[in-house]
């Protein structure tokens, strides 16, 4: 069972958390005129890398706050935990962010600039 360092409550068992999946998915606004296929990149497509993955977690049984984490999916090591709405600072996590296929998607390009680094779009 993972031990997850909630940025507010400290280290707690995995059972107190919910994993929200991939982070930094920019939400294209409804008025954007991207195609259905491009919209699907936002709605359905999720990355599943072997190695460093940027994902969102919520401390559901504690402070109920969401945060971002860079986790190695092979070793389960949490490389970095960082605030919602910010980008990671460690090199491995920054590389993971930059190299994610999503950075090149039409749906991300169609999102508001602010949403690309923050939010759910900012689901960051």
């Amino acid at each position: 069972m993972l031990l997850i360092d909630c940025p507010h409550c400290g280290a707690r068992d995995e059972t107190e958390f919910a994993c929200g999946g991939e982070a930094h998915i920019a939400r294209p606004l409804a008025e954007n005129t991207i195609s259905d296929a491009e919209f699907a990149e936002y709605l359905f497509w999720r990355d599943n890398p072997k190695g460093v993955f940027l994902e969102r977690w919520c401390h559901t049984a504690g402070c109920r706050r969401w945060f971002n984490a860079a986790r190695d999916t092979v070793t389960h090591e949490f490389i970095e935990i960082y605030a919602m709405g910010s980008l990671p600072k460690s090199k491995a996590a920054k590389d993971a962010y930059a190299s994610a296929w999503r950075r090149q998607t039409a749906s991300e390009k169609a999102a508001k600039p602010a949403q690309k680094t923050s939010g759910k779009g900012a689901k960051s």
Binding site: C9, R12, T15, E16, A61, G62
Partner: peptide
């Protein structure tokens, strides 16, 4: 004493 947590 004085520690307070939300937990399960």
């Amino acid at each position: 004493s004085g520690t307070a947590v939300q937990t399960i």
